[in-house]
Each structure stands twice: as C-alpha cells, then as structure tokens.
C-alpha cells in the first residue's frame, strides 16, 4: 500500500533484503554485466593468454583460413586474428575507461561544487559546460591529434574534456535536487562542514545516476576511440586494437576476406550495446529510488 496512499505515511515498511545497486536490473541488465565483465577480464588477462605474437605474421599466409593453429584465420599480414582480438581488447578498453574515469571525476566534482555554492559559481560552470557542449567530442579529439600528434594520449585527453559536460549536467541537476532536501538543511544546521555534506551525503545519493551515466559514456567513448583508430588517428600500428582492426580489415573486405573487420566490429558492437543497456537499466532504477 505504500505507493498508493499519498499523504499517508505510517506504513509498516517491507522487510526485504536490499541488494544495493544491483537490485532490479532484470535479465538484460545482468546479461550486459556478463558481457562487460568478460570484456574487462579479456583486457586484463588477454595478453597473458596469447600463445602467439600478435604483431608477428607470415606474409605468405595473408588472409589465411581458420586452421588448427589459427582458429579464426589470419589477417592480411598473416598475423593470427584470435591473438590480435584477444590482445587488442586491452587497447580497446583502456582508452574509454580512462575517458570515463576522468570525465566522471571532473564532471561530478564540478557538479557538486556548482550545486553546493550556487550563485555566480553555478552560473559560470553552466556557461563553460554549454560552451564545451558545442564541440562534438570526435571533432575535439581530431583537433587534439592534429595539434599533439596521432595516438591514444591526445585522443583520450580530448575526449575526457568533451565528455565532462554530459556528466556535469546530469550530476548537477541530481545534486541540486538533493541540495534542496530538508535533510541537507538539517545537516547544515548541525554545523556539518559543506565538503563533508557533499561527499558523505549528496554523493552517495546521486551515485547510481552517476554510475549509469558513466556506463553509457563508456560505450560512446569506445565508439569514438575506435572511430579515431579506424581513421588512423588513434592507436597506431602495429599495436592490436579493435577499432584499428576494423580499419585494417577493410582491405580484406574488398578481397572477400571480411573476417577481421567483422570480428572486431562485432566485439565493439557487443561491448557498446552491453554498456548502453546496463546504463539504461541503472538510470531507470535510480529514477525509482537511488
């Protein structure tokens, strides 16, 4: 009856176990977690699993068909595809991970500060955020690689800045909502320090939303970085990377050997889809009760 009797409050609360942030994810949410865990696991242990050198190939065996030695076949340079996919997981995941961590921390800190101090500081943050919004992330990244040279570091730094406004905007509105709650007023009246209120009270109450947004950002960052590597501005050859492999596989497609682009692309799609679905489930849940 709890939800049906607005205005009535004395309801004996349900005594159920709380599952923390995993509560109410549903089948699709759990499947997505499974996919993401597998990908992350691959990124951590992948290079250790590889029995063959990902960068060494036999040119004579270019576009080699699947065999006992090469389960998924070989690329144009005769390098083992499976090994390159397994090893490439780390480069494919580490970039987006860095982008997400950096933009989440930066965005959340900005949002908390803006919501807490309000006034001119809040306005200033809002303006800066709006300005950065005007630049598409990919464009900013291309600009950065043009300035600082192609490669992951410049692209990651640029994307981190480009992704911060998304996090800042979502976290700010959630933080503002919390800031207006009577329990925050009660804490101030107690004499609890503002920093402590932000970190110990507002942050835990917006964390599901922040986590949800970070998960979705991970998917987008993976696509953006894969795209950069695809056009040759991101991860540089001969390093194995899913995005770069889609690009390198292009030549094979023309020669009816689409495996490389297909496998790498499928891994990207699966990872991004999982991140999106999970982010979506988390958002829905945080709207219910964070």
């Amino acid at each position: 009856m709890t939800t049906l009797t607005a205005g009535e409050v004395e309801v004996t609360p349900p005594r159920r176990r709380t599952w923390g942030w995993t509560r109410g994810l549903g089948v699709s949410g759990w499947l997505s977690i499974g996919v993401l865990v597998l990908v992350l696991l691959l990124a951590v242990v992948g290079p250790l699993l590889a029995s063959q050198d990902p960068n060494e190939g036999n040119l004579a065996q270019g576009f080699g068909a699947p065999s006992v030695e090469h389960w998924l076949g070989q690329d144009a340079n005769g390098r083992d595809l499976l090994t390159r996919l397994v090893v490439g997981a780390r480069t494919a995941v580490i970039g987006p991970l860095l982008v997400v961590v950096a933009s989440t921390i930066l965005g959340t800190v900005l949002a908390l500060a803006a919501a807490w101090f309000g006034g001119w500081f809040d306005t200033a943050v809002a303006r800066v955020v709006d300005a950065v919004f005007a630049f598409p992330g990919l464009l900013l990244a291309i600009l950065a690689t043009a300035l600082f040279g192609a490669g992951l570091p410049a692209a990651v730094a640029a994307l981190s800045i480009a992704y911060t406004p998304y996090m800042a905007r979502i976290a700010r509105s959630a933080a503002l909502r919390e800031r207006g709650m009577p329990y925050i007023a009660a804490l101030r009246v107690q004499g609890i320090h503002g920093l402590s209120i932000c970190v110990r009270h507002i942050l835990p109450n917006i964390r599901t939303l922040v986590l949800a947004n970070a998960t979705i950002s991970f998917g987008f960052a993976l696509i953006d970085l894969a795209g950069l590597s695809f056009i040759g501005l991101g991860v540089q050859p001969p390093t194995a990377d899913w995005g770069a492999m889609v690009g390198e596989g292009l030549a094979g497609i023309l020669q009816r050997y689409p495996q490389e682009s297909f496998y790498a692309g499928a891994l990207i799609v699966a990872t991004v889809a999982a991140a999106n679905v999970l982010g979506d489930r988390l958002t829905t849940r945080s709207e219910g009760r964070s």
């Binding site: 409050v9 709650m181 009577p182 329990y183 007023a185 009660a186 804490l187 009270h201 835990p204 109450n205 009760r289």
Partner: peptide, 11 residues
C-alpha cells in the same frame, strides 16, 4: 522538519 521521509539521508 515536517516530512519524516525527506529529512533523513536515505543512505
């Protein structure tokens, strides 16, 4: 405050 539901931190 009036509302016992919003005057405590739910976490």
């Amino acid at each position: 405050f009036q509302d016992p539901y919003t005057s405590l931190d739910r976490h």
